[in-house]
Design a protein around this nucleic acid. Sequence first.
DNA 1: GGGGTATTTAGAAAAATTTCTAAATACCCC
DNA 2: GGGGTATTTAGAAATTTTTCTAAATACCCC
Lengths: 90, 90
Amino acid sequence: MSFAETFKALSDPVRREILTLLKTGRMSAGEIGSHFDMTGATVSYHLNILKKADLVYEEREKNFIYYNLNTSVVEEIMLWLKDLRGDNNG
Amino acid sequence: MSFAETFKALSDPVRREILTLLKTGRMSAGEIGSHFDMTGATVSYHLNILKKADLVYEEREKNFIYYNLNTSVVEEIMLWLKDLRGDNNG
DNA sequence: GGGGTATTTAGAAAAATTTCTAAATACCCC
DNA sequence: GGGGTATTTAGAAATTTTTCTAAATACCCC
């Protein structure tokens, strides 16, 4: 939701890797988990942080929960960074 | 230095505010500190994290240490984000 | 409904971060 | 050199984050 939450969410390497995984399309929680050497509970914890930060959203289907990248919040962060470096050009 | 370090550095609100302060130009450690309700030691801790992340660099003059924003690392972060959202357009 | 798979929640332990106080370093200028 | 200001370093306390295990929830399909 908040801007600060988004930056916090992006600060963890596991969460950034999750976002990278989602670049190519949605993925179930279990599938995401299989890319990491940690329990499903821990992956769920990270997904929840990404969700609260609005960096991902979920779609429930059958017995699965699929996670999707939400790029609109990524845009917001880019705007903040652009402003920081001086938004002339680019 | 590392990419992960930069994101971590950006994840703290105090440090983001420091960067915003530096947008208009360099500022001494003491001047930066006067904008916050915390001890100089704590401000120094945050400045050190920003420095390690290459987000700022320092210039020593007389009895002061001036901090400057380093925008080139900001660019790197923007590239990562651009790639994440799909770098078509923008 | 009941067994089964997928995922989350709760609670606790371990690890990392943020903050403070006190002391140390650095450099100025007389 | 010595007193003075600016800043950092060291070490400890408080807080937050990350992770795990165990249990709970959710939903499927026979």
